[in-house]
């Protein structure tokens, strides 16, 4: 679960927009914010556009360990 989550992207984006909407923000900072914002947008849009929901099953093995496998539903 190391890839950025939708929640992280959205929260970062919200923070960026809030800062960018302040008039006193420096131009360098504004450009950097914008670029970061675009990256967050791409993450968010990528997750929104993702295909079919993955369905997996988890089974406990005889030795107590868990095995995960794809499941067709």
């Amino acid at each position: 679960m190391s890839e950025p989550s939708f929640q992280e992207a959205l929260e970062r984006l919200e923070a960026i927009v809030r800062e960018l909407e302040r008039t006193d923000v420096d131009l360098d900072r504004a450009l950097a914010l914008f670029e970061d914002g675009v990256r967050q947008l791409q993450v968010a849009r990528g997750l929104l556009a993702k295909g079919d929901a993955q369905v997996k099953k988890v089974l406990q093995q005889a030795d107590g360990t868990l095995a995960t496998d794809d499941l067709d539903v």
Partner: peptide, 10 residues
Amino acid sequence: WPAVELVVVP
């Protein structure tokens, strides 16, 4: 929201 992952514990 297809980005969600479902894990079935039967």
